[in-house]
């Protein structure tokens, strides 16, 4: 089932990506081919195989509740494009 350009638009919005109008056909085509390809799974005889989320068959290790981190704000914020008063700046958030 080929994807429509509308589908691609919706997925792009969820993923917060934007495609120029002239890119949409090629992306739609590529994505349709990928989805067609993975559609092979449809016929796989999985029976009652439990889903495998992870290759490791071991439980989560629990960390001790200890504060180990120091303030490194200055260091971390060197990588940020817009900061003020220690805050990361973004276009106004409207709730």
């Amino acid at each position: 089932m080929p994807l429509s350009s509308k589908d691609v638009e919706n997925i792009a919005h969820l993923a917060r990506l934007r495609f120029a109008e002239n890119e949409v056909p090629a992306f739609t085509d590529n994505l349709s081919r990928i989805i067609d390809f993975v559609n092979q799974l449809e016929a796989a005889p999985v029976g009652d195989a439990p889903p495998m989320a992870h290759p490791l068959d071991q439980p989560q290790r629990l960390r001790k509740d200890v504060v180990t981190e120091k303030d490194q704000r200055a260091e971390f914020q060197k990588n940020a494009a817009a900061i003020e008063a220690g805050l990361y700046l973004v276009p106004r958030v409207i709730e």
Binding site: P51, M52, A53
Partner: peptide, 10 residues
Amino acid sequence: KAQKVRQLIS
């Protein structure tokens, strides 16, 4: 479905 097939492959 892919996770289940992953189980089979494993």
